[in-house]
Amino acid sequence: MFKHLKRIKFMLKPWRFLPFLKEFYVSKDVQLHKKALGVLLILTYAFFPFDLIPDFLYLIGIIDDVVIAGFVLERMVNIAPQSLKEKYNVI
């Protein structure tokens, strides 16, 4: 439970998280299918015409998109190589 919360806290700091994401996609330690899966899941949900909560419900509709994208990004942090997690102190 605490690892999950620590990853979310890490993701809320863009000055640390964005370089992590860049290195995640540049790293040869991360398998290509893992890189593609993260992008594919976010793009699929973003462009899929049906949402869990429709976007015309202004604030609530946008929040479900952010939560789903956050979940996918949190999973990407989870599957990152141990060396990358150690470098950014995400363990």
Rank of each mutant, 00 (worst) to 15 (best):
I8Y: 04
L43R: 06
F10N: 02
V30Y: 09
H33V: 10
M1T: 04
L52K: 09
K87G: 04
L21F: 10
D51S: 13
M1W: 01
V30R: 06
K6P: 03
F2M: 13
P14C: 00
K34T: 07
L32P: 05
S83G: 08
I79N: 04
L40C: 13
F2G: 05
A46N: 12
F24L: 03
L41F: 07
F2Q: 11
K22P: 11
A46L: 15
M1Y: 03
I68R: 04
N89M: 02
A69T: 11
L59K: 15
W15R: 12
P49L: 14
L43D: 13
D51K: 15
A36Q: 12
L21P: 04
D55G: 15
I60G: 01
L21C: 02
H4V: 15
F56L: 12
N78C: 10
K35R: 09
Q31T: 12
I42V: 03
V67T: 14
K22A: 12
F17I: 07
I62Q: 10
I63F: 11
V90D: 03
P49F: 15
V67Q: 11
K87P: 02
V77M: 05
I53Q: 00
W15D: 05
N89F: 02
V39K: 06
L59T: 15
R7Y: 11
L18Q: 01
F2C: 12
G70Q: 07
P81G: 03
L43T: 13
L37I: 06
D65W: 10
V66I: 14
K3D: 12
R75A: 13
P49D: 14
I8V: 14
K3W: 09
F48S: 12
P81R: 05
I42M: 08
L84C: 01
I53D: 06
F10C: 07
P19D: 01
K6L: 07
E86V: 05
D29H: 13
F47L: 11
A80Q: 05
G38T: 02
V90T: 08
H33C: 01
R75F: 11
L59D: 14
K28E: 13
E86W: 03
L5C: 06
V66D: 02
K34I: 06
E74L: 12
E23P: 04
L21G: 04
I62G: 05
E23M: 00
L21H: 07
I68L: 08
Y88V: 07
Y25R: 06
K13C: 14
V39W: 09
D64M: 03
G38E: 03
I42W: 03
L84I: 09
P49I: 13
A69H: 03
P54N: 06
M76L: 14
Q82P: 08
